[in-house]
Design a protein around this nucleic acid. Structure first.
Ligand code: MN
Ligand code: MN
Ligand code: MN
Ligand code: MN
Lengths: 229, 229
DNA sequence: TATAAAAGTTAGATTAACCTAACAAAAATA
DNA sequence: TATTTTTGTTAGGTTAATCTAACTTTTATA
């Protein structure tokens, strides 16, 4: 059985390697920073996790999860997000309060507990932050990335990045009220001028296709793609 | 903030000192046995807890909780029993499955979490084993002990001890179906012969006053007495 | 390409929680 | 009371997870 610390390393490695979809590996310093420990500390743990066949790691090289390591990491993420959902939906915690407590709850060891919690919550697909909850079988669906311009009317999505990094554009994004990871609903698309009407945090605004094609989003309503290499 | 281990020592000391209501102290070996560690290990921890002013302890002496130590211990018991109640009532865990998981959950650090859980459960007074749940303010009510013969009709209680330790009596207790800590309901008292009709685990039986006065019980329905020295 | 910077590793130390083995004090009992 | 048993303590050691300081390798850049 894994220690809380080992679980945290695997989860951190999963998160870092999911961020950059292309290369599924992370450096020692990067991992140490993510976990708030010194590189020397992370280095020790990397050797230990390699011994346990949970990661691929070679001296001076980048690290990546093995199939078993990935499975374990996904299980931790599943627990984290189910607990966040419980705290948010049943105990009246707010969006920003759930994470800290879920960091503790995700390490409770009881498969019966997590299965029953899943059932109690009615098998939710997303946590309060809109992140996908992995299934009991360890499948973690990753919603497709696209631009806001390509999003369908009526769908719910969230901004996960921008294509234009100019100050002008970023200031405009701010002004429109868009924030990273905040839920967005696409209300309509005007046939006359192609303006897209969106709702963010209760506020409605209209944006141009030019603007929208520089906003990268993930859609919660579109077909989900499994990601379980 | 206390470590999980420190919390476990305080809780164990509370439990040991509640058992023998007269002398509120426990020996090093006794405590070590309760926690499943060696006396040498417990000895180290006793010194540490004394430094933190959580227990009273002197070399070769018995240990007892300070006011602060007792407060902390009661908080852990409160968390344990609220979680047990949650698992039992909302996640369909059985009587005997809840304890193991609650041993982990009782160490989650979040006062908001436990307050909200209490509210969610509608401020329960007893856990699934019939044990009293301490209040948010740290009051731990201890139900009055009395004999089954003194118990009122209609009340719910549980056996916590016997006054007669003869084999004959104990075998009779077994035969009637009484088990330690198992819920008992007093159904009636016949005016004619004073026989007491009780229900245990769905089974009804009648016992004599002679028998009943040798069964020590605690009543869940009687006035509770605070125990917060 | 030579040098500087960044990234990664190693050695040695610390802390918490545990252990065993040897010893000391207190309590029980002969 | 003397002896034995029980109880409690100490010394010294282990493991997991952390650190700092010094070192090495790799990568970037002048
Ligand atoms: Mn989170
Ligand atoms: Mn989340
Ligand atoms: Mn319990
Ligand atoms: Mn209980």
């Amino acid at each position: 059985m894994l220690s809380t610390t080992e679980e945290n390393y695997l989860k951190a490695l999963l998160q870092l390697t999911l961020e950059q979809a292309d290369k599924a590996e992370a450096g020692t310093n990067e991992l140490a920073a993510q976990l708030g420990v010194k590189p020397a500390t992370a280095n020790d743990m990397l050797k230990k996790l390699r011994e346990k066949q949970l990661i691929n790691y070679e001296k001076y090289g980048k690290s990546s999860l093995t199939t078993e390591g990935r499975k374990q990491a996904i299980e931790v993420v599943r627990k984290h997000r189910l607990w966040e959902t419980f705290l948010y939906e049943h105990l009246g915690f707010s969006w920003d309060e759930v994470h800290e407590v879920a960091e503790q709850l995700e390490h409770i060891q009881s498969s019966k507990l997590i299965d029953r919690l899943d059932q109690f919550l009615n098998y939710p697909s997303f946590d309060p932050h809109g992140d996908v909850i992995p299934s009991a079988s360890g499948e973690m669906k990753i919603p497709a990335k696209k631009t806001l311009n390509e999003e369908e009317v009526g769908h719910h999505c969230k901004m996960v990045g921008v294509k234009d990094n100019s100050a002008t554009f970023l200031q405009y994004v701010d002004k429109v009220g868009l924030r990273m990871n905040q839920p967005i609903k696409v209300l309509s698309r005007q046939p006359y001028d192609e303006l897209i009407e969106i709702e963010v945090n209760g506020q409605k605004s209209s944006v141009s296709p030019r603007f929208a094609e520089n906003i990268v989003i993930v859609c919660n309503d579109c077909e989900l793609q499994k990601n379980n290499s």
